[in-house]
Design a protein around this nucleic acid. Sequence first.
DNA 1: ATGTCGGGTGTTACCCGA
Length: 266
Amino acid sequence: MRLATWNVNSIRSRADRVAAFLQRQDVDVLALQETKCRDDQFPEMMFNAIGYEVAHVGHSQWNGVAILSRVGIQDVEIGFPGMPSWSSKEGLDPTPEARALGATCGGVRVWSLYVPNGRTLADPHLQYKLQWLEALRAAGADWLAKDPATQIALVGDWNIAPENDDVWDITVFSHSTHVSPPERAAFRGVVEAGFADVVRPYTPGPGVFTYWDYTQLRFPRREGMRIDFILGSPALAARATGALIDREERKGKGASDHAPVIVELD
DNA sequence: ATGTCGGGTGTTACCCGA
């Protein structure tokens, strides 16, 4: 089984590219982030036509996560237990953002995750990001405590570069989010709860990235960040036999600013 | 220089978010 994750930065503007990718890379299950649409706007028919079932949650032009599967899609769950909400305005009743979607596909519990960005070190959004990750860690630990043999894949855009090698020049990030100690500790917390990076062993760095900013010629200059991850529970990680980051999808007109990440499971 | 992309709107010019 081939499992992939991709921050597409709008599914409506890239549906053709996603469909072509699924077929070119022979992907069975694809988690998408930043679909940037409501459920009724998701181009579901085009994926049904090539053999994929679709689960999606999206409320507006922000966020939005989906799972596409040709090996079944059961027990769809919007948000994980304890997932925090966000409201930028005091006193508003916050509705949960469309940042997490779970579904069981071919025996694997897949979670498509779009971790909050954090914006800047002083922004309340960073605290929201840390709380969100802590809640995810707690949920993941709970799932594993209930069934240590369960196959879980936590995949998506984590908006964290866990190591200095995961950015092109760490000195540029001295006052930035994505590399700060609390963010890295939050990511490490999920790993230490039992979820291993199943892609890194097959895509060693340095200089191996999944995201390149649209501005400042970052992609041709090879100035990127590794912030998209496939983390697997022990039973899932034991099935990994290979992985790749599909840089080709970052090339050309109409590319997302993220490349897809794929793992091969036996 | 945010130099680029998205989607949005009190739409053909700006807003926000990343």
